[in-house]
Write a protein that binds this DNA or RNA. Sequence first.
RNA 1: GCCGGAGUGGCGGAAUGGAAGACGCGGCGGAUUCAAAAUCCGCUGGGCAUAGGCCCGUGAGGGUUCAAAUCCCUCCUCCGGCACCA
Length: 853
Amino acid sequence: MKYYPAREIEEKWQKFWEEKGLHKSPDKPKRKYYVLEMFPYPSGDLHMGHLKNYVIGDVVARVKRMEGYDVLHPMGWDAFGLPAENAAIKHGINPKDWTLKNIDTFRSTLKMIGISYDWDREIGTCFPDYYKWTQYLFTLLYKKGLAYKKKEYVNYCPHCKTVLANEQVVNGKCERCGTPVVKKELEQWFFKITDYAERLLKDLDKLRGKWPDYVIKQQENWIGKSYGTEIVFTYEKNSNIKFPVFTTRADTVFGVTFVTIAPEHELIKEIWDDIEQKDAVSKYIKEASLKTDIERTKEEKEKTGIFTGLYLIHPFTLERVPLYIGDYVLVGYGTGIVMGVPAHDQRDFLFAKRHGLPIKVVIKPKEGDAPSADAMERAYEEKGVMINSGEFTGMSSDEGIKSIQKRLKEMGLGGEKISYRLRDWLISRQRYWGAPIPVVYCPKCGIVPEPIDRLPVKLPEHIKDYKPKGRSPLQDVEEFMNTTCPVCHGPAKRDPDTMDTFVDSSWYFLRFTDPKNDKEMFNKEKANMWMPVDQYIGGKEHATKHLIYARFIQKVLYDEGMTDYDEPFLNLFTQGLVHKPFLYCKKCGKVVEPSEVENGIHKGCGGKVEERVEMMSKSRGNVVRVGPFVKEHGADVARITILFASPAEKDMVWQDAGVEGAKRFLSRIYNLFMDSKDILEKDPQVNVDTLKDEEKNLYILLQRTIFEVRKDASKFSFNTAIARLMELLNALYAFSNKTSSVYKRALFDFIVLLAPFAPHLAEELYSFVDSEHSVFERSFPSYDERFLSFDKIVIPVQVNGKLRGRINVEKGISKEEAVDKALKEANVKKYTEGKEIIKVIFVKDKLLNIVVK
RNA sequence: GCCGGAGUGGCGGAAUGGAAGACGCGGCGGAUUCAAAAUCCGCUGGGCAUAGGCCCGUGAGGGUUCAAAUCCCUCCUCCGGCACCA
């Protein structure tokens, strides 16, 4: 194949763009467009899986620039995090040096593929000039009462030896290492995201149609609003101690035969002295806390619990209700206490059966008899009509819930209540490579946040031991831990923990609008000029993590008056993953190299080898590294391969055949233009009144291509946009009159249309006609509406909905003429002759359907 | 279990009520070549037919419609999220 000299071309134009400052965003945009890709954690090297995100963003940025917008398209590094520490532990490399090296690799690789970033705005979360403001953000939340310290049972990963936020626990396992998470009682810092639950939920309405539906849905579920009732049971021995429960089925309250409290619940301490079987109860609590979440939740049948020997008073019947401790009750949801209604809740039913508790039926179906308590095999959970329920008997479930809420309110024992599934955001990490939590512990003044003039609290750069021990490595660094109190100037201690890296990334998009500011997090005017992000592009995995945290922080800053926008990301696009096949040995559970395989058998262990197709990752050994790829094939080949392989939002499989296809496409372009070099003109004009048939057809195809490419590019349908360009290219190859002005026009427009997708090649071709300017200084071509369809068209003719012929007609033909013409077609005749035409459907210029009987 | 999304040639995919399979990959044939590679041109869902054409075909089954890959119902499979949330 006659390939084009990709690297030579690409290096030349990358230099040209840089010298021209083509990708710099203006300080004061006129028509602003902020396009942002989720910034990466800079790892060892960049592979095609990473690249997709940036290539998509780059097409958007380039199209928008060519549409006349002032574009902000920045890049930075989410550079705090575990891998740097692991490198330090494993290879003895300093985390900072390791990170800086990775950043250099990432930056130069991104430059090598020609992504159009404004590199002057580069930021990195691990640099003091950035994390100073992450720390400032912490103190801001602290002052607003949104950052608080609490001793609680928190998620703890025994392998990573650190605590985790709820969002970082996937199916009861640590999302990073897959180790089952346990509960540990620790004093930790939290951000009070639950205060914003309602707004985070309600404002999803603003994002509907602009964010993918599934992300909105996932956030709704994550926030998990549920309407219910709080019902207070009072302690028998001291009516001042109240046990509120949360239920969505207040109509079943007369069926309560026990109450269960979560083992970690604080109220247990208040009644501790009254418990007789202290040893057994304390043993149960201890065992529950040692179980992993998976152990606690896997066996739905095992509803363990222990009786406290104590009783509560039912608010309506005033009966004594036994109080149990059971680990099926979650301390963090509702009130952490539930009323046990075995007749109407399956979990309570199982618990009652196990502990020999009575079953009281209080709901019957609208029609038919009440279920019998003795014969019940499972709970009757449907709504119905209330029975055995005192003054509420006879009411429907829904009426009953309302009446009970009203009565409870009158009695001062509860009422209507809304619960959220969302928990407060645990942000402490027992880690070295993160932003230190900027508070001091003063023996006199207590917890004191660092004032702005003492920020940043710098991370000591060289420490002896990075190994996780279940406490922060910083705790052993005396020069870090010992400080003075900003209030009384006496000796004080620092907090040894660092912040969750999701705090770093919850505001970085604001920093890009004013990246070098050393007086504030960002200047309000500058932020308002660029925010909100018009197009955010990133991975699906952040649906309920980064994308909730960032929305939360944006709202906090909005409330603080620091920005005018309460949603950070106007439009969101989530790209699909890049997969690649690799070989896997089932027997030894390892990824194997093709060289280790013979006849489908792993030479090492004799196990069967299978092909798996999964996400590119180092551990699977199925990565295609960007650097070597670009050196071999070129940046534009990488871009086209990614964009053409599948729709951008869908997962794609990286295939060598796709690379060949992309390369062939670009080479065909290059070769055609090299052959046409002498006839190329800048802005060739076409006289549309004197076109010959062949010319007119090409002219129309060109207008349609412009129309389709614009449309496809605006909806992220890059694969079809490129397909349109391929069609046009094929037509250019087939066109016979190479001196025609239409041909020249089509060649010229082709260059401009190609530019966002294969920018280097397009720039090279453009330089043939204009050696001074960049193709990106041109506007995207517009189409001539009069020439979007051909004059002579073919209309399919159906008889009773089945295709029976085609007629060649002029555009705009009337229904009558079309029918006349169609009925003369031999094959149509065959099916209509001798039959009665009962209906004719005519879609102008599109289709004719004759219905006969 | 609950909530989303998807299922179309040998493969990636197009078409979101109007000609199913655009475009690409692969395959077949031709031109070029001493030959090969590369390149260029043509054909390429399955079946029947000498052909004009005909029948079948978008996971399965049913329905709505003149017309369904597309809308509705039932089911199957795969993917993602949540999951003792009271």
